[in-house]
Measured scan of single mutants.
Amino acid sequence: MQRVNMIMAESPGLITICLLGYLLSAECTVFLDHENANKILNRPKRYNSGKLEEFVQGNLERECMEEKCSFEEAREVFENTERTTEFWKQYVDGDQCESNPCLNGGSCKDDINSYECWCPFGFEGKNCELDVTCNIKNGRCEQFCKNSADNKVVCSCTEGYRLAENQKSCEPAVPFPCGRVSVSQTSKLTRAETVFPDVDYVNSTEAETILDNITQSTQSFNDFTRVVGGEDAKPGQFPWQVVLNGKVDAFCGGSIVNEKWIVTAAHCVETGVKITVVAGEHNIEETEHTEQKRNVIRIIPHHNYNAAINKYNHDIALLELDEPLVLNSYVTPICIADKEYTNIFLKFGSGYVSGWGRVFHKGRSALVLQYLRVPLVDRATCLRSTKFTIYNNMFCAGFHEGGRDSCQGDSGGPHVTEVEGTSFLTGIISWGEECAMKGKYGIYTKVSRYVNWIKEKTKLT
């Protein structure tokens, strides 16, 4: 034993070699072989497995989906700052455009905790909710729209109204504003409101030439003092309507412009014939205590009207009353817009006519005020429907199939267009061939041609 100890002390290297040989010859039971080890760690190889990531292109799944990435790591994937920024906006807080917040056709661009709407022409605001041009839906104005110097929408209202708090709607500024039905039992019968379409306001006024200088022999019209197929109006439903009495009662109609003036057809009036105007009328054979009678003290036909040349060209006249009318729910003026808007309103496509005229061709006159909704007829169809001249200051309205029309005794009465609950004068009943005849239409004086003249002559002093 002493000898062994001496050998170990003198030859430590020998001992180490012996131990190493023993270990190498022993069977290893701690580690699995290569094949079995792979069965336990069965993990798919990654895209760049075996390579240094710093030297390969980034992978979106590896960089940002398996674990949260930084902007720089995302930049490695896209290799483009702009594309990385677009991805980053949604990656950080989701897609803010998912709810489609942009209105009126706006395009949404996502941002971090926010979004941006790219608005089409005519709109602005956070969600493109603000109209900035009158060309689109009248700028959301209830009545009139004008573009300011910086191309912003400025709404306005006709006389007797003021802008509401929203700067879009119009509200009454006087007790009985024009064009409004205020009798409670008839307010439910107000005709369907007309909503502004998209309009090209630059070209809204037709490029028409008034044929002022045409000389033409007097034409022989049949029954051209021209509501057939209409309905009984309720008291106060058309408070701007008046009836004219002269040699015979209810020979023509008219509309209240203001307390002192009536507008009617020029062919209705004769110099030297006494005319009485009755406002607030409903049943011409009954006294309903809503009527107001006034005498006409002055007749002003349009300066281009000449019955000797043509009885229905420039067929418009103004009547001055001896005493002002007292405005109330049964006696209310009709609204008159400017030339541009009167023309736009007419193009809405349908209007209402009213009167006490004959209820059928050569038949009896109506006792109760009649009204009828009539569609506008395109000019080409209008011209083809008659052998008589249709001037540019006239328009056609009615039904091709016949059966409904204005008729004798309705002449001078109103053709009105309702705009968001307020009625505007767009025409004056003038003439036609018979009444409600198939293929024939009622012919009306186009008020847009005469609004400046009306307003100039009827100013209240």
Rank of each mutant, 00 (worst) to 15 (best):
residue 8 M to H: 10
residue 85 T to W: 04
residue 86 E to C: 15
residue 25 S to R: 03
residue 209 T to I: 09
residue 367 L to H: 13
residue 192 A to V: 09
residue 16 T to L: 09
residue 80 N to G: 15
residue 15 I to D: 01
residue 118 W to P: 15
residue 34 H to D: 06
residue 212 D to E: 08
residue 32 L to A: 15
residue 417 T to F: 02
residue 97 C to V: 03
residue 421 G to S: 06
residue 355 G to F: 13
residue 153 V to A: 06
residue 360 F to N: 15
residue 83 R to C: 15
residue 180 R to K: 09
residue 277 V to G: 00
residue 34 H to R: 10
residue 223 D to A: 08
residue 399 F to I: 15
residue 45 K to Q: 12
residue 398 G to Y: 06
residue 256 I to P: 00
residue 8 M to P: 07
residue 278 V to Q: 04
residue 242 V to K: 00
residue 52 L to G: 05
residue 16 T to G: 07
residue 95 D to V: 09
residue 195 V to G: 12
residue 261 W to A: 01
residue 187 S to K: 04
residue 444 Y to F: 11
residue 273 V to A: 09
residue 239 P to W: 01
residue 89 K to N: 05
residue 318 L to N: 01
residue 10 E to I: 13
residue 373 R to W: 05
residue 71 F to S: 15
residue 319 L to R: 01
residue 127 N to S: 09
residue 81 T to I: 08
residue 86 E to W: 10
residue 20 L to S: 01
residue 54 E to Y: 04
residue 76 E to A: 06
residue 247 K to A: 11
residue 43 R to E: 11
residue 425 L to E: 00
residue 372 L to R: 09
residue 187 S to D: 04
residue 227 V to I: 09
residue 199 V to R: 12
residue 183 V to M: 05
residue 233 A to S: 08
residue 431 W to P: 07
residue 313 N to Y: 08
residue 202 V to H: 08
residue 362 K to P: 07
residue 70 S to Y: 09
residue 189 L to Q: 05
residue 121 F to D: 05
residue 109 K to Y: 04
residue 194 T to M: 10
residue 12 P to W: 07
residue 195 V to D: 11
residue 350 S to A: 13
residue 281 E to V: 12
residue 258 N to H: 03
residue 310 N to Q: 11
residue 259 E to P: 05
residue 231 E to R: 12
residue 344 I to K: 07
residue 37 A to Q: 15
residue 233 A to D: 05
residue 452 N to R: 10
residue 430 S to F: 03
residue 370 Q to F: 02
residue 350 S to E: 08
residue 313 N to Q: 14
residue 169 S to T: 10
residue 99 S to G: 08
residue 391 Y to F: 09
residue 325 L to H: 00
residue 404 R to M: 03
residue 70 S to V: 08
residue 19 L to F: 12
residue 202 V to N: 12
residue 168 K to V: 07
residue 459 K to N: 13
residue 82 E to V: 15
residue 388 F to K: 14
residue 157 C to G: 00
residue 85 T to M: 07
residue 379 R to V: 14
residue 225 T to H: 08
residue 368 V to Q: 13
residue 403 G to L: 10
residue 416 V to H: 07
residue 224 F to I: 12
residue 49 S to H: 09
residue 42 N to F: 05
residue 273 V to I: 04
residue 252 C to S: 01
residue 189 L to S: 08
residue 423 S to A: 06
residue 212 D to I: 07
residue 25 S to M: 13
residue 82 E to F: 07
residue 116 E to L: 15
residue 73 E to L: 07
residue 273 V to F: 06
residue 58 G to E: 03
residue 188 K to N: 08
residue 261 W to Y: 06
residue 322 D to W: 01
residue 251 F to C: 06
residue 260 K to R: 10
residue 449 R to P: 13
residue 83 R to Y: 09
residue 158 T to H: 05
residue 222 N to Y: 11
residue 214 I to T: 11
residue 443 I to K: 07
residue 237 Q to F: 10
residue 11 S to F: 12
residue 182 S to M: 10
residue 67 E to K: 04
residue 412 G to C: 07
residue 360 F to R: 15
residue 368 V to Y: 14
residue 232 D to S: 11
residue 428 I to G: 01
residue 455 K to M: 10
residue 160 G to R: 01
residue 75 R to A: 12
residue 424 F to E: 00
residue 371 Y to M: 12
residue 268 C to P: 01
residue 216 Q to Y: 06
residue 310 N to W: 04
residue 439 G to W: 03
residue 256 I to V: 05
residue 131 D to R: 06
residue 145 C to N: 00
residue 225 T to R: 05
residue 433 E to I: 04
residue 440 K to R: 15
residue 319 L to S: 00
residue 107 S to R: 13
residue 175 P to D: 02
residue 189 L to P: 06
residue 125 G to I: 02
residue 317 A to G: 02
residue 379 R to N: 12
residue 380 A to S: 04
residue 38 N to I: 07
residue 157 C to R: 00
residue 152 K to R: 14
residue 320 E to C: 02
residue 210 I to S: 12
residue 153 V to D: 05
residue 383 L to A: 15
residue 367 L to D: 11
residue 297 I to F: 04
residue 445 T to H: 07
residue 457 K to M: 15
residue 362 K to S: 11
residue 117 C to D: 02
residue 243 V to P: 01
residue 309 I to P: 05
residue 381 T to Y: 09
residue 50 G to W: 06
residue 55 F to H: 13
residue 413 G to I: 15
residue 321 L to F: 00
residue 453 W to R: 00
residue 426 T to E: 00
residue 273 V to S: 11
residue 48 N to M: 12
residue 85 T to Y: 03
residue 15 I to A: 04
residue 442 G to Y: 13
residue 236 G to K: 08
residue 25 S to N: 04
residue 450 Y to G: 01
residue 281 E to D: 08
residue 131 D to P: 11
residue 256 I to H: 00
residue 95 D to G: 13
residue 51 K to V: 09
residue 404 R to V: 08
residue 187 S to G: 09
residue 415 H to A: 03
residue 310 N to M: 06
residue 128 C to M: 02
residue 241 Q to M: 12
residue 419 V to N: 07
residue 168 K to Q: 12
residue 36 N to T: 06
residue 153 V to C: 04
